[in-house]
């Protein structure tokens, strides 16, 4: 179980706005997050990842305190065992598809499986500049999964995928998430594309 209670001033949402959130996420569950642009959805994921620090708050993951601003606890992202799919993919231009995965893990069998489920086996020696938008997005998902994360944070992860690939990939991802008992938080503008994901829905923004 993840217990989150955070407060963070937002720069973008009309100025002077704050993101206040208190929520609980069951281990192994999938939560679909939606809300208006600039409401703090990405900021919420980054706070859970330890990439952004809220002014006030507490995050407890399966009994382990990741963040407690009152006790000045802030576990670095490296120790949180998370996977993060960035909206801009954040792929490394110097690395090929395989090198991205090898940078994250030394488990070759796992790398092969990830490449197979995403239909990326023929592109292993390609660098991001030579991949299509959809292939880049799939690589961003694979890289985040490579570490077998206990918490998967996905920011608009399927926006560049065509419907056919999206359906197959989501089905494969569900298998992997179940297998790893990964807790998943997915931010999306388009909730309908996540219909096949069983899970809760969380609105972030002004009620």
């Amino acid at each position: 179980m993840i217990t989150v209670s955070i407060e963070k001033k937002l720069r973008t949402y009309g100025g002077g706005q704050a993101l206040k959130l208190a929520a609980e996420f069951l281990t192994g569950s999938v939560t679909k997050i939606y809300g208006p642009s600039g409401a703090g959805k990405t900021t919420l994921l980054k706070m859970l990842a330890g990439l952004v620090r809220p002014e006030k708050g507490k995050i407890v993951f399966n009994g382990e305190t990741w963040l407690d601003t009152e006790r000045n606890i802030d576990m670095p992202p490296q120790k949180r065992k998370i996977g993060f799919v960035f909206q801009d993919y954040a792929l490394f231009p110097n690395m090929t598809v395989r090198e991205h995965l090898q940078y994250a893990t030394h488990d070759d069998a796992w790398i092969q499986r990830l490449l197979a489920v995403s239909n990326m086996t023929t592109f292993t020696s390609h660098k991001p500049a030579y991949l299509s938008g959809g292939q880049q997005q799939r690589l961003a998902i694979l890289r985040a999964l490579a570490t077998k994360p206990q918490l998967m944070l996905m920011d608009e992860p399927f926006s560049a995928l065509d419907t056919q690939i999206k359906i197959v990939l989501i089905s494969e991802l569900q298998h992997i998430f179940n297998e790893l008992a990964t807790t998943v938080l997915i931010v999306s503008h388009n909730l309908s594309e996540l219909e096949s994901f069983d899970g809760n829905v969380l609105y972030v923004g002004n009620q």
């Binding site: 990842a49 992202p77 120790k79 065992k81 998370i82 954040a90």
Partner: peptide
């Protein structure tokens, strides 16, 4: 986000 992605992969 390049550095952030690397941190989330556990890299120093």
């Amino acid at each position: 986000s390049l550095a952030q992605a690397s941190y989330t992969l556990g890299k120093t």
